[in-house]
Nucleic acid binder design. Structure first.
Lengths: 243, 243
DNA sequence: CGACGCTTTGACACAACTCAACAACCGTGG
DNA sequence: CCACGGTTGTTGAGTTGTGTCAAAGCGTCG
C-alpha cells in the first residue's frame, strides 16, 4: 500500500499535479473498499449497470466470452485502474470482469464521476487521460495479436505490464509479482496454453525473461525490446495547473 | 449526404434526442469541411497534436505501424465518426490515420470539445457514448483477431461494418459500398492479403457474402451470424431529456 | 502500347493448435 | 501419516490453418 492517496492518486499524479482538494476528492471516492474473493465475477458480459470500480488491491482481468466457448482477455487492470467505466455508457456491458486473486475494489456511481468532471475539471482531464492510456494499451494489444509472433507478443506483454506496475510502485525495472497462470496468459495473448508454455520456455532459455512461481524476472530488457519493438511511454506530466 | 445536420447528428440522435440548440452547435463545428485527397496521412503515428477531425465523407483508416514494417489497421471510421480524439490527450499519437478515398473532414480544436461538455452536457454524454461505442468495437476487434478463425473474423467484420453504415444511412441490410482492397482488409483482420482472398472466395462460394467491385453484398445474414456469433447492437435511445 | 494496381491461383513451408500423457504441487480428509 | 483429487506446468507427436513465394490474369490509365 503506497502513500495515503492510493494507487490512483499516484498514477494520476504522473500526469497532472493535483491540489489538496482534488486529492481529498480522490480519497473520498475510494473510501471503504469492498473485499472480493478470488475468482468472483464483478461484472458480467451482457449485464447493464450504473456502477464502476477502482481496483485497489489484487489482480483481475476483463474479458470477452465468445460463442464457441473460447475467451479473449482484454486487459489486466492493476491497482489504481478503473473497471467497467466504459460499460456504463453503453446499454449493456460488452465484457465481463473477474478477479484472479483476492482483491479490494472501490465501488462508485457513474453519476459521481460526472459531478467530478464538473467540480474538478483538472481531475476530470486526468481521468480522461487515464482512460485514453487504457485505450492506447488496448490498441497496442490489438496490433500485437494481429501482427506479432507468439514470442514477440509475449515479450511485449510483459514489458508493458512491467511499466504499468512500476508507475504505481508495484514492481522494479527487473522484477514483479504476477499471479497469472498460463491459461489466462493464453487467453490474453490469443494463443493456446500449451504454446504459451513453449514460448515461456524459450524466453527463459535465451535468458531474456523468466516467468515462474507467480513472479516475472526480466533478465535482459534491451533484448526484449529489440525482439518486439516496444516503445516506452513518456510519463512526464504534461498538464500543469494554470494558477 | 443526409439531412442538414450531417452524419454525426444522425448517429448521436440514435442515442439521445437533441435540442435545436444542440443541433446548431453540431452544425457549427462541422462547418467548412476540408477536402483531403485519397492516400493522405491526416495524422501520423508519434506526432503530437491538438486537433481532431470528424469524417464527413469518404473512407479512411487508423492504423499502427510496427517495427518490422507490418501494419495493423485499428478501425475504419465512417462518416460521422471522430478521428484522433484519443491522441490529443496522450502526449503523442499512438497511431496514424490515412484516407483511403478522397474525403472531407471537419477539423476542430480539442478545447472546443471541452467547451461543449460544459455548455451542452447532453451533447457531451452523447459524444462519450459514441467514443464508448468505438472502444467497444475495438475490443470486439481484439477478440476477433485473438480467438476467431480467418473466416469467422471476416464475416464478423463485414456484419459490424454493415451495421455502422446503416446507422448513418450509408447502406442497406444487404448491400453497401466498400472501397477497400484486400491488402487493407488483410491489415485489419490480421491476415495476409493472399489468405483474405481465399477467405473471400469461400464466403462467396458458400453464398454468404460477396465482396467485389468495391461493393459488399450480404446474401445470407443469418448464416453469417451463425458462423461467427455476431451480436446486434441495441440502438434504441437510452437517454431522454429531463425537461 | 506498356506500366501499374489489384486480384487470383498453386505449391510449399511453418507457426501454432490439438491430443495425449505425465510430473509437480497443493490442500483435504481418512 | 499417506492417499487423493484438483490445478498447473511440461513435453512429444502429429495436424492444420495461415503465411510465403512465384506467377499469371485483368482492368485502367497515361
Amino acid at each position: 500500500m503506497p502513500e495515503t492517496g492510493g494507487f490512483l492518486e499516484r498514477k494520476l499524479s504522473t500526469f497532472v499535479r493535483l491540489s489538496e482538494q482534488e486529492k481529498r476528492c480522490l480519497s473520498e471516492i475510494q473510501q471503504s473498499p469492498m473485499l472480493v474473493k478470488s475468482g468472483h465475477e464483478l461484472t458480467r458480459q451482457g449485464e447493464s449497470t450504473h456502477v464502476a470500480y477502482i481496483l485497489q488491491q489484487g489482480w483481475g482481468c476483463s474479458f470477452k466470452d465468445l460463442q464457441d466457448g473460447s475467451r479473449q482477455v482484454i486487459a489486466f487492470p492493476i491497482p489504481g485502474d478503473c473497471v467497467g467505466l466504459r460499460s456504463v455508457l453503453l446499454r449493456t456491458s460488452d465484457h465481463g470482469f473477474t478477479t484472479i486473486t483476492d482483491a479490494q475494489v472501490s465501488r462508485f456511481e457513474v453519476a459521481r464521476i460526472l459531478e467530478i468532471f464538473d467540480q474538478f475539471p483538472h481531475l476530470g482531464s486526468a481521468i480522461l487521460w487515464a482512460t485514453s492510456r487504457d485505450e492506447a494499451i488496448t490498441v497496442e494489444h490489438l496490433a500485437s495479436i494481429g501482427r506479432r509472433t507468439a514470442i514477440e507478443r509475449t515479450a511485449h506483454f510483459f514489458l508493458e505490464l512491467s511499466d504499468r506496475l512500476q508507475l504505481v510502485g508495484l514492481g522494479s525495472e527487473t522484477e514483479f509479482e504476477c499471479p497469472l497462470n498460463q491459461y489466462i496468459l493464453a487467453d490474453a495473448l490469443g494463443l493456446s496454453a500449451i504454446h504459451v508454455n513453449r514460448v515461456l520456455r524459450e524466453l527463459r532459455e535465451v535468458k531474456l525473461l523468466t516467468f515462474q512461481d507467480r513472479r516475472v524476472v526480466i533478465h535482459d530488457r534491451r533484448g526484449l525490446i529489440d525482439l518486439d519493438g516496444y516503445e516506452e511511454v513518456d510519463q512526464t506530466p504534461i498538464l500543469e495547473r494554470k494558477s
